[in-house]
């Protein structure tokens, strides 16, 4: 799915988060967004998913303006999956119910078909034995993988990953990133907000450095990480590298 954002603006009260934001993502492209906390990464993803209404500008999916006021967001959201930093699994439902709820209620699949989808995806990501577990009984890494499965079960054309490893212990980060590595091979379009620089470098077709609600610099990961041109990008990468050494 092709995504275009034109002059998108978003503020919360007097705080401007995105302003005059332009972005073009080709079908199947994997784009990472890096930048300091508060640079607008999360807001950007939530705007694409229509969880946050934009104040100005327009968002197009395959040339279709999805951000128009009064448009029913539900059919659009079915095509876009999002995985959150804090997992947001439904705690009163088992893994199976978490995954099959939208399959049955939104896509109107039968219980058997939905459970089949859930089982296949769970097996693919090494969670086959967790079908009837509750979120509280899983580790953070397992919960996040279930959350990814829940989003993937809807067969989205675009997947948004919002700092999906930020709430995890370091030793659990790997298992979640492995899932994303596997997805890249499947040809799904992905937008990734992340603080994992090494991962962004490895997985992305393109890296965008966000600063003050705009893309300050973008390009192939090799260029943005090795020869950043923008002064703020350089500063940010230096700070991140310094942290990585300690």
């Amino acid at each position: 799915m092709k995504l275009e954002m034109r002059q998108v603006a978003k503020s919360f009260g007097s705080r401007t988060v995105l302003s005059g934001f332009d972005l073009d993502v080709a079908a199947g492209e994997v784009v990472s967004f890096i930048g300091a906390s508060g640079s607008g990464k999360t807001t950007l993803l939530r705007c694409v998913n229509l969880l946050e209404p934009i104040d100005d500008g327009a968002i197009f999916l395959d040339g279709d303006e999805i951000s128009r006021i009064g448009r029913d967001p539900n059919p659009i959201r079915r095509r876009i999956g999002i995985v959150f930093q804090s997992f947001n699994l439904f705690p009163h439902m088992s893994v199976r119910q978490n995954i099959t709820l939208a399959l049955m209620r939104v896509l109107e699949k039968s219980a058997d078909e939905a459970t089949g989808t859930a089982k296949n995806l769970l097996a693919r990501f090494g969670l086959a034995d967790k079908l009837d577990a509750y979120p509280d009984q899983l580790s953070g890494g397992q919960q996040q993988r279930v959350a990814i499965v829940r989003a993937l079960a809807m067969n989205p054309e675009l997947l948004l990953l919002d700092e999906i490893t930020s709430a995890l212990d370091p030793e659990l980060v790997g298992e979640v990133l492995d899932v994303v590595r596997e997805l890249k091979g499947s040809g799904i379009t992905m937008l990734i907000a992340t603080h994992e620089m090494m991962f962004a470098q490895e997985i992305s077709d393109r890296v965008c450095f966000l600063d003050a609600g705009r893309i300050a610099e973008q390009g192939p990961p090799s260029q943005v990480f090795s020869q950043p041109r923008d002064e703020r990008t350089k500063q940010f990468l230096r700070r991140v590298q310094a942290l990585g050494k300690t």
């Binding site: 969880l51 804090s86 699994l89 709820l101 939208a102 939104v106 989003a151």
Partner: peptide, 25 residues
């Protein structure tokens, strides 16, 4: 609020979100 966000992001309507996600909790 994040529970509502998760439910709506899956394409559930407002009333489905209330019925299946918010009210049971």
């Amino acid at each position: 609020e994040s529970q509502r966000a998760a439910a709506r992001s899956l394409g559930l309507s407002n009333s489905q979100t209330m019925r299946f996600v918010i009210l049971p909790q």
